[in-house]
Design a protein around this nucleic acid. Structure first.
Length: 436
RNA sequence: GCGACCGUAGCUCAGUGGUAGAGCGCUAGAUUGUGGCUCUGGAUGUCGGGAGUUCGAUCCUCCUCGGUCGCCCCA
């Protein structure tokens, strides 16, 4: 150990995995990726940083955004307008506007990258975390079917992850706005009311109803009844909505019907008028998702329709719709579940042990032959055999190959199976077949 | 950014105003080419850092740094 640098702990809120967990995370990512590619979403990565101006354009709180500068930057010396992205949607909007002549619309992309937020770290809440997003961006117009498609793809992704029961709770901002106007909220009061509704599950509906009344609604009681109704779409027939509200209702009904038509199970999706979403760029469909097995995680997949996000950056309207899986937070629970929990720390299936260091040239040949035959094989180069085997078992390798003087001389190997403790001596060219 | 709690072995933690312990892990052996189980032995600590009180502080006080949880916000 050198003393040429000072070793200090990892920074809180910037999680790092152990090998086994990292493989679990990679597995989760691969499963989601496979689903999204089946829908034709194409992979994309964007830069970790954006211009601060771009990030802050949408009324995001500046205190949550990390700025970037060189340690020794002086005065007006560059880089001070650069900041780390806090989500993947805003960078996507910028990317699409910038490359609109090269892209084919509607543009479907998936993106799994870290984002950064300047908050205090807590359980399942990090300052650096991965999001796994899909979005579809239209050129001028984007049909409602695109909303349904991202919901259906997201639901399939969660199934592929084997998260158990879950529900996509879908609402529509236009409908919610109409409903709030019906209840007497307009302008800033409407924004406040949305925040109150967003908080309701945490603080309780009684308090929320009182707060809504205090905010000036004569209809806070009926409003809460409608919001919480078991079958909100039926109850809404009784409410006299304005034109925008009715349009939102129609959109919501269509999106649900289309998503089900695209294969989303009846039990995995439903209308929920209490879903509001904090971010103010949503204009239509909004969705949050909760796991039955882990409700404490909150929403692990959320998103919605934003008709104007890209319009701020370019001239043409570029409506988009997308959902984001909070895969770091999800994994804080998921990696303790099967099949992730019993995942091996090593990707290798076979340990080629070193029984005798003078045989290393022979081992090298054997290793190459087995890898060429498709065997994932890890080698040790010395040490006690017992320790080699112990470590291989601990890392989750299924087999060990032991080759001593005698085996080397007659072209065989002892194959040990950790799963049941058995072992047998085999000709080398049968080993690959046996461990396949 | 605000509030509460916590910092003792690699990890999880116990403990006392008289300079420290358990479990797990690590390691050696029982078991001379063989892991997981069992048994026996061994190593490991600036008791987070600094200052103060005291004959003496890991323990009491203050400051500081770090962590956890809650609020805000959200994945």
């Amino acid at each position: 150990m050198t003393d040429s640098f000072k070793l200090v702990g990892a920074v809180s809120g910037f999680p790092e995995y152990l090998p086994k967990q990292q493989r679990g995370f990679a597995e989760a990512v691969a499963r989601v990726q496979a689903v999204y590619e089946a829908f034709g979403f194409t992979p994309l990565e964007t830069a970790a940083v954006e211009r601060a101006e771009t990030l802050l354009a949408k009324g995001i709180e500046a205190k949550e955004v990390y700025g970037l500068r060189r340690m020794a930057a002086e005065g007006s010396e560059g880089d001070k307008d650069i900041a780390l992205r806090f989500d993947l949607t805003v960078p996507l909007a910028r990317y699409v506007v910038q490359n609109q002549n090269e892209l084919v619309f509607p543009f479907r992309r998936y993106q799994v990258q870290p984002v950064w937020r300047g908050e205090r770290a807590q359980a399942g809440r990090y300052r650096q975390f991965y999001q796994f997003d899909i979005d579809t961006i239209g050129d001028g117009a984007l049909p409602l079917a695109a909303d349904a498609e991202v919901l259906a793809a997201g639901a399939k992704a969660l199934q592929a992850l084997e998260v158990g029961d879950f529900v996509l709770r879908v609402n529509n901002r236009k409908l919610l706005a109409g409903l709030l106007r019906w209840a007497g909220f307009a302008g800033d009061d409407q924004t406040m009311a949305i925040k109150l509704i967003d908080d309701a599950e945490k603080v309780g509906w009684e308090k929320t109803e009182a707060a809504l009344a205090a905010l000036g609604s004569k209809l806070s009681g009926p409003l809460v009844q409608v919001l919480r109704a078991k079958e909100p779409l039926r109850v809404l027939q009784e409410v006299e909505l304005d034109e925008e509200g009715r349009a939102g209702l129609t959109e919501l009904q269509q999106v649900l019907a289309l998503a089900k038509g695209m294969g989303t199970a009846e039990t995995n999706i439903r209308a929920d008028l209490t879903i509001a979403r904090g971010l103010d760029y949503y204009t239509g469909t909004v969705v949050e998702t909760r796991l039955a097995a882990a409700p404490e995680l909150g929403s692990i997949m959320s998103g919605g329709r934003y008709d104007n996000l890209a319009a701020n950056l370019g001239k043409k309207p570029m409506p988009g719709v997308g959902i984001s899986i909070g895969i770091s937070r999800l994994c804080s629970w998921l990696l303790a579940q099967e099949p992730y929990a019993s995942m091996a720390a090593s990707p290798a299936a076979v340990l080629l042990a070193c029984q005798d260091e003078t045989l290393l040239p022979h081992y090298a040949t054997v290793a190459q032959q087995l890898r060429a035959a498709g065997v994932k094989l890890e080698q040790t180069f010395g040490g006690k055999l017992a320790t080699q085997l112990k470590n291989a078992d601990k890392k989750g390798l299924r087999y060990a190959l032991i080759i001593g003087e005698q085996e080397a001389a007659n072209g065989t190997a002892t194959l040990k199976d950790f799963a049941n403790g058995t072992q047998e001596v085999l000709p080398l060219d049968e080993v690959a077949k046996r461990v396949a």
